Amino acid sequence: MRPLVATIDLSAIIHNYAVAKRCAPGRQAFAVVKANAYGHGVREVVTALHEVAEGFAVASLEEAAEVRALHSEARILLLEGCFAAAEYQFAAQLGLDVVLHNARQAQELLAATLSRPLNAWVKLDSGMHRLGFSAVALREWHGRLHGAPQVAELSVLSHFACADERGSEVTEQQLEAFLDVLDLDFAQRSLANSAAILTIPAAHMDWLRPGIMLYGATPCADLTVAELGLRPAMSLTAQLIACREVDVGDALGYGGTWRASRPSRIGTVSCGYADGYPRHAPNGTPVIVRGQRVALVGRVSMDMLMVDLTDLPDAVEGDAVELWGAQLPVDEVAQAAGTIGYELLSKVTARVPRRYRSS
């Protein structure tokens, strides 16, 4: 069996959900489990949170159906809503909460014949300009949707663009825009993503939407996981599958992008970009071998990468290698590679076996 595994600590996810709840006492929370729970395994994560989470948030009807099969009672929020008129009947059968972010979705809901009314969330474009109604349009649609036979509860939500940047003027403006529509009669309100849960109490409202924080990566540009009291959930672990000596001037890997400036000892690791490790990770990206940091060297290949073991002479073939996890935060690897922890976690591919533990 190829020596590469993503070990998921489910107790860390439960802990991180509890952190979100402690930040906003009395509020309810949709645990965001889209994209296979950010690569951690939606079945296992929903099962782990079954007794504690009031709701779950997903991106598609397919994801919603999978969650509903695992939890018959929790509220399930369809974050982008329905993409076709016929989907509303399926959403009603599943008992979903659906987001409405444009006039077409709202019109199709009002035209639908449903087995039961849906909880509908109108989305305000408070300043991110990705999805949602303007404040004027939201007021108009509130009047048309409120009390409609297809609508059980009418609620409102929005999404922050810059909540990860503490003190952002954009965030303040978005919060003000959201508060400006709360004179309307809404059953529930939701605004806080992970960053806002942790740093913006005024945004907590009725329902929280913890996403990346559940999985133990930071949503804040200037705060680490440890500072936020979160626990990493995934450790991506491989092995040294070869060790070799190279001479001064020897080039490594595809394109020969790294050359030895000293007599060097190079280890080959059983992980590559087909497993989800970023191909664009540069020389010097940290990797853990025998509890010590070593540097990635050369281009990441499809199935392998290489590290400089020159300053770790005791390392041998068969030693464990942590690509990220408890000893090396995924956010640090992401920063070195010019991306974010969200992308690295969600891109761990299906060929990497997941193993689960509860402590």
Results as ranks from 00 to 15, higher is better:
Cys162Trp: 08
Arg116Cys: 01
Gly325Val: 03
Met304His: 12
Ala336Lys: 06
Leu182Trp: 01
Pro3Val: 05
Ser194Trp: 02
Arg355Ala: 08
Leu296Ser: 11
Ala192Asn: 04
Met213Tyr: 02
Gly256Glu: 01
Gly298Leu: 13
Phe83Gly: 11
Pro149Ile: 06
Pro263Leu: 10
Met234Gly: 09
Leu312Ser: 05
His146Arg: 15
Gly167Gln: 09
Ala48Pro: 02
Glu62Ser: 07
Glu63Gly: 08
Gly132Ser: 04
Leu214Asn: 06
Ala48Ile: 02
Glu51Asn: 12
Leu345Ser: 10
Ile8Cys: 14
Ser155Arg: 06
Ile288Arg: 10
Ala91Met: 05
Val45Ser: 11
Glu169Arg: 14
Arg231Trp: 05
Ser235Ala: 12
Val67Phe: 06
His71Ser: 13
Cys162Lys: 09
Val42Tyr: 11
Ala238Trp: 09
Asn193Cys: 02
Ala295Ile: 08
Gly81Arg: 06
Leu179Ala: 11
Asn16Arg: 08
Ser115Lys: 02
Trp324Cys: 15
Leu157Ile: 01
Val45Cys: 08
Ala92Asp: 09
Ala152Ser: 10
Gly249His: 07
Asp125His: 07
Ser235Tyr: 04
Gly256Thr: 03
Thr310Lys: 04
Ile288Asn: 05
Arg2Phe: 06
Pro282Val: 14
Glu80His: 13
Met205Cys: 07
Glu317Ile: 07
Gln93Glu: 15
Cys23Lys: 12
Asp250Pro: 05
Leu94Trp: 08
